[in-house]
Design a protein around this nucleic acid. Sequence first.
DNA 1: ATCCATCTGTCGCCTTAGCGACAAGTAACG
DNA 2: CGTTACTTGTCGCTAAGGCGACAGATGGAT
Lengths: 221, 221
Amino acid sequence: MNTDVKYWFLRNHQLFNQLNDLQYDELCVIGRFKEATKNEVIYFTHERLERIYFLKKGVVKIAYVDNNGNEITKDVLKEGDIFGEISLNKNVDHSGEYAKAVSSDVCICSFRIDDFEKLLSKNPQLSLKFSKTVGEKLTTIEQRYTNLKFKDVKTRLFEFLSSYATKNGELHNGFLTVENVFTHQDIASIIGSSRQTITTLMGELEQEEKIKYTRKSIKIL
Amino acid sequence: MNTDVKYWFLRNHQLFNQLNDLQYDELCVIGRFKEATKNEVIYFTHERLERIYFLKKGVVKIAYVDNNGNEITKDVLKEGDIFGEISLNKNVDHSGEYAKAVSSDVCICSFRIDDFEKLLSKNPQLSLKFSKTVGEKLTTIEQRYTNLKFKDVKTRLFEFLSSYATKNGELHNGFLTVENVFTHQDIASIIGSSRQTITTLMGELEQEEKIKYTRKSIKIL
DNA sequence: ATCCATCTGTCGCCTTAGCGACAAGTAACG
DNA sequence: CGTTACTTGTCGCTAAGGCGACAGATGGAT
């Protein structure tokens, strides 16, 4: 990828849009850029440990393989999201974890966390924005945790779909519509349920005319 | 509280220990200090929204009252932990949430998040440390979420006690020992279970000689 | 067009753990 | 010390939802 394109990518990421040209140049030098196509694996555990990733374009799935050999989806990310070693701590164990492109147009920029730390300490504004981004992720996961503790599967399912659609979809003649990148199994592992239960409840929610779910799209009514 | 004492408090918090004297003076001016004794409530929702809290000393419980009037514990914090509006985002809804002193020697320093943001943007080092602290919290809650999804209550209970003891306790002739500030009900609401189940499992874990639990202390064997 | 892999739909069984009820233990406070 | 409030312990019932099994649908690859 040539420098102009890199430059453009970073310019358009919410975290970096207030930097000046010189700072951009530096970013481009230390960043690693990667494009990926459907089902391509973006990192494996050992190399992940050291890096933080910025998803510029496309959809990425964070997953790992459990003891029984099943792929367990942890999260699905879209444009503007960050992943990898967000805590900037090298000693966290993420064995088995990997990221996989879900769409065919994935564009990612990554930094070694040492480099990224240096960058942060030189750019207070960037650092502050970064804190807020991490804080946002914290809020999301806290919400999911509370839901998992106190709400039944059906509620969790509906709230998951709603919040996903709110965040990533758009209003389309009356209802929130968003492209569907999930299988029932994906949703089950994200919200903490089983594949079969999701299938059943998805049916019920359709009956109740709360959602419209196809393999292509999700609509919230 | 006089300025000397304030000064000392902040000096000793991990987040602030690399600031110079001038920066400390500023901290002391914009920070609000508070001491609290057992069962004293530290904030109510409406004022919490604007503030971030640093726990310098003692034990604090974060809780809220649910629709049935039960107090639900969300977390229990110790020396060095932060709480309140960690995401620096004023628009998060935390209705009903409050913090309560569990020990009799609680010391807290808080900042309005606007002030704190300014502080961060002037101190890149502080900002970086703050990011890491938030990141750490994120890692913890992600771990809890995964546990809640895939592990049974007994495992969660044991891992909760272990990690709490590891973080806050000390090795005492052979086993990890930590002061006990939890009721069974507290633990139940933190790890997502019921009071009765915790009681039963606590008994089992004692039988299996994995823990020793009294109202005063928790030991991991 | 056909094949194979993956995804969705449905059924029934069975386990985990939640919940009400009540008893016994502990400790704070007058 | 005795009253009262909170915490722990125990039992039995019940429901939510996990899980195996299998059938049908969908869709990409050759």
